[in-house]
Amino acid sequence: MCLAVPARILSIEGQEAEVDFSGVRRRISVALTPEARVGDYVVIHTGFAISVLDEAEALETLKLFQELDEFTAQMLQDTDNPVSQSAPNHELSGK
């Protein structure tokens, strides 16, 4: 559907940014992500950043995969209620 890849912002001038992706550099537009700052990781699609990656969210997901077993998976599923009926607290990922 939409090939997009994560890269780190090295510098920003106006609506243009230089990003680094494991050594590969390219100028992209941040017109769609005005909140992006230098050092942020952004998801890039056809030369535009379309979101600023939430590192805390990513680390939490990875941590989850680390301790994953039957129990944590089940527990997560219960707290990860449907978005429409949001449960009181979401200490695990899946807001």
Partner: peptide, 11 residues
């Protein structure tokens, strides 16, 4: 339900 498994990019 709708379960957001790509929370690092999707809000």
């Amino acid at each position: 339900a709708v379960s957001n498994r790509y929370a690092r990019s999707v809000r």
